[in-house]
């Protein structure tokens, strides 16, 4: 399985993401700069976390309008898997590849800690190596992770099983509606989540609960 990592100015989790993908897939991902209008044939495209364009205007708003995002949208339309983590999730929402929006944490504080996540849908291509309802550990580090969608959109994504991960055991760090931590697109090939699974993939990280997400996406058997 081949992967690619999208690079934009102000992202800072790209090296962690590249390391995780290299370690898990055995091959270094391609990197694609923001001005590229074509993305080579890959199975998984990842938009990592950080602060693209300094979070100016709204988190992810400017990044979402860069040429590479038109290429990402086209690949998503073709069914290629797309993963956005943290700022990557914000960018996918701003690009209209996922429904809803991410707002300032209700605490108004930047939150950097470990949370518990429930695998709310283990039937997606990104979660199939987890079991339904499994509780995993995962780090979060964000200021704007408070997921919001209007009532109609929320009912739709809940009804269609598009909520992939929820904050569990009272660890919702940002006030997200319905404890939503990550959602997939209607077709299931695009996942956005605020937590950082790439930072919990091996013993040196203190655990490997995030590894199954990448193994699921990369088609590696559990």
């Amino acid at each position: 399985m081949k992967s690619a990592v999208v690079l934009l100015p102000g992202l800072n989790r790209d090296r962690d993401m590249i390391a995780a993908l290299t370690r898990i897939s055995g091959t270094a991902p391609l990197t694609v700069w923001q001005t590229e209008t074509q993305i080579p044939a890959v199975d998984l495209i990842v938009i990592p976390g950080g602060f693209s364009y300094g979070d100016y205007l709204r988190c992810g708003a400017i990044a979402a309008r860069m040429p590479v995002m038109r290429a990402v949208a086209e690949k998503a339309r073709q069914g290629v898997m797309v993963l956005g983590v943290c700022n990557g999730f914000q960018i996918l929402l701003e690009a209209g590849l996922l429904p809803g929006a991410l707002m300032r944490n209700t605490s108004l504080k930047f939150v950097c800690r470990e949370v518990k996540l429930e695998v709310a849908n283990a039937g997606t291509a990104f979660t199939r190596n987890y079991s339904q309802g499994q509780i995993i550990r995962c780090p979060v580090a964000h200021h704007d992770g408070n997921y919001f969608a209007d009532a109609e959109t929320l009912a739709r994504i809940e009804g269609q099983g598009q909520v992939a991960f929820r904050y569990a055991e009272g660890t919702n760090p940002n006030g997200s509606i319905n404890d939503i931590a990550g959602i997939v697109s209607e077709r299931g090939n695009v996942l956005g989540l605020m937590p950082h699974p790439e930072n919990l993939i091996e013993a040196a990280h203190g655990g490997a609960d995030g590894r199954a997400l990448f193994e699921s996406a990369l088609g590696i058997a559990a």
């Binding site: 708003a61 929402l93 809803g100 707002m103 969608a149």
Partner: peptide
């Protein structure tokens, strides 16, 4: 519509 406002919110 395209940039200055996020019409979701």
């Amino acid at each position: 519509e395209k940039l200055l406002a996020n019409t979701v919110i």
